[in-house]
Design a protein around this nucleic acid. Sequence first.
DNA 1: ATTTGACCCTGCATGC
DNA 2: TGCATGCAGGGTCAAA
Length: 307
Amino acid sequence: MPELPEVEVLRRGLNPALKGRRLERMQVFNASLRWPVSEHLAQACQGKALLEVSRRSKYLLFRFTSGTMLVHLGMSGTVQLIAATAPLQKHDHVQWEFEGGQSLRFNDPRRFGSVLWLSERDTAPALNTDGDGVNHKASAAGDEVNHKASAANAHSLGRAQALLARLGPEPFDEAFSGEHLFRSSRRRKLAVKPWLLSGEPVVGVGNIYACEALFRAGIDPRRSAGRISLRRYQRLAQCIVEVLDEAIAAGGSTLRDFVSSHGQSGEFQNRYTVYASEGKACQRCGESIKRFIQAQRSSFACLRCQR
DNA sequence: ATTTGACCCTGCATGC
DNA sequence: TGCATGCAGGGTCAAA
């Protein structure tokens, strides 16, 4: 479901409702997500005030006074504001009850999502993931009963840090530009579309918006990243920002199940030019839109307009 | 060092 | 109606 625009729409909906409120209780109904939800997570954030909901890439970051909770929605995850007493739905896995009766629920049929914790100490500085990973492997190998719980906790902690440490620039940051795309792509043979999806040159761009941005920029998704000119990358960078901006303004894309924190559907799916449009006429030239597979993902393009 | 393909899991649409 | 198949917005990981 969620690429950057959808996650950003959620973030914007959550802040007015939850910012500044104390978290009274966190309940885990099903801990088996992408990684097990740490048993210590609830204990770490309960009773703390939520300072702000922010976003990095496709991760929602709930900044508490004591640390940060990271929520990733995977393919099918949603978070919804709801009354704490509302009946549980199928695939509701986690609930956070805030003061004043406002609650947030995490629902995810496919369970590709994750809920992880970063303690205050590790939140701000420390991008020192190397030493971290080694330590946790060592302690997990030791595996005494006494240390089991803390090792599991430390592991999920290192996990969150590692996820954030590897990310490329945000598309709306100054660090992101055509020059950046051009420089970081030299000698890369990988096709430009899977390269964009890798999160290395830019984060938050998923399958839909990669297809749409490449169409706007007139670039064939199959072209090697290293064989695209600076001029064309400048255009692409601009198109990526444009597409994401427009999608956020439209409330995101609702293909199956995406809804905002208040249950609103997005509208951007009505403005796709190529995504999910196989066989339709290209809006620019009338040629039939083609679908093909790259890195196990569907790509859509007009092969006359995109070179 | 890059790049690939298998895999994580459920739900839905399609065709037989 | 049931059943098998293929597909889906995310990402990790081992192996080539």
